[in-house]
């Protein structure tokens, strides 16, 4: 039931988290959590509200410095220790991209511009740190066209091509969620971290989200780390699930194992009571 090989990097793991602990004053939001994410897999983190899921993401992506712990990411033949890296380098060098629980788009900019900003570092080099760009060098124009093509590719994937020139802030909620995923993908990530991407989506939209995440894993070979409350998404697409409660990892394993784990059922329901019908339905949903 527990992940094997803490301390050493498992050979097929892209991310290994060891003894991650995050304290805010007296509150321990994440308490000695260890897990790993296999390459080309979808790993979900679930748990009740306030369990510390988003805090794990914030530690991974450099927004918080963990109190204790090692976060090792393997990419491009090197191992990056994320806990020591400056926030923006985690995306730039270790190639970890993320989305946010409360969507963070560049609201006054267009959909396409949001995707261009995501390709900033490559375009910046191509524009000769703006010098070549100012004079409209051909090499820069080619790089910009390539960036637009990449943006268009992801717009097609998430079905936003028609709205490419809309202001991002004017998009409906579901479109904003998908745009945020497309934006993260435009950074060419090795690991994609999604914080509740299905929140507020209708059933049809969350079904197409499942397809999108599978494509990202299977066709693009990218590992996905997913926080999600919607069990129909989690149970259906996860390869591996980690359950947090009060900051501690209480279970992990395949969807099948986790669903039947008594500790998980207790965490979601409190003490030995019967399942409330809607949770039971949720848990059944994935079958």
């Amino acid at each position: 039931m527990q992940d094997a090989a803490h301390g050493a990097l498992a050979p097929d793991a892209i991310l290994t988290v060891d003894h991650l602990t995050m304290r805010f004053g007296g509150l321990t939001a994440v308490d000695d959590v260890s897990f790993s994410v296999r390459d080309r897999s979808i790993t979900s983190i679930i748990g009740p509200n306030g369990a510390g899921k988003t805090t794990v993401f914030n530690c991974l992506t450099g927004f918080y410095k963990p109190t204790i712990g090692r976060l090792a990411l393997r990419h491009g033949g090197a191992v990056h220790l994320l806990e020591r890296m400056e926030g923006f380098r985690i995306c730039k060098e270790a190639r970890v991209a993320r989305t946010f629980q409360n969507i963070r788009l560049f609201g006054a900019m267009t959909v396409l511009e949001n995707l261009m900003v995501a390709q900033h570092n490559r375009l910046m080099v191509a524009s000769g740190f703006s010098l070549l760009g100012l004079f409209g060098a051909a090499s820069f124009r080619a790089a910009e066209r390539a960036a637009i093509d990449k943006a268009r590719f992801w717009l097609d994937r998430v079905g936003l091509t028609d709205r490419a020139d809309w202001e991002a802030g004017n998009l409906p909620y579901g479109d904003q969620r998908r745009l945020e995923i497309a934006r993260a993908m435009c950074t060419d990530p090795a690991l994609l971290c999604l914080d509740e991407p299905a929140a507020g989506l209708n059933p049809r939209e969350s079904a197409s989200l499942n397809d999108l995440l599978r494509t990202i894993r299977d066709s693009h070979g990218i590992a996905v780390l997913l926080i999600e409350h919607d069990m129909s998404v989690v149970m259906e697409i996860s390869d591996h699930i980690i359950v947090l409660d009060y900051g501690r990892k209480i279970a992990s394993g395949s969807p099948e194992n986790v669903r039947n784990d008594p500790a998980v059922i207790r965490a979601y329901l409190g003490e030995e009571e019967a399942l409330p019908p809607e949770i039971a339905a949720d848990l059944e949903g994935g079958r």
Binding site: L105, M109, H120, M124, L134
Partner: peptide
């Protein structure tokens, strides 16, 4: 310069600095 990557990054920074950092800027 507004149409160059750096100009777009300025505007993105004005809109949301946290999102910018998460994109490697």
């Amino acid at each position: 310069i507004r149409r160059l990557p750096v100009g777009r990054a300025w505007e993105a920074l004005r809109e949301d600095e946290i999102a910018c950092r998460s994109l490697g800027i």
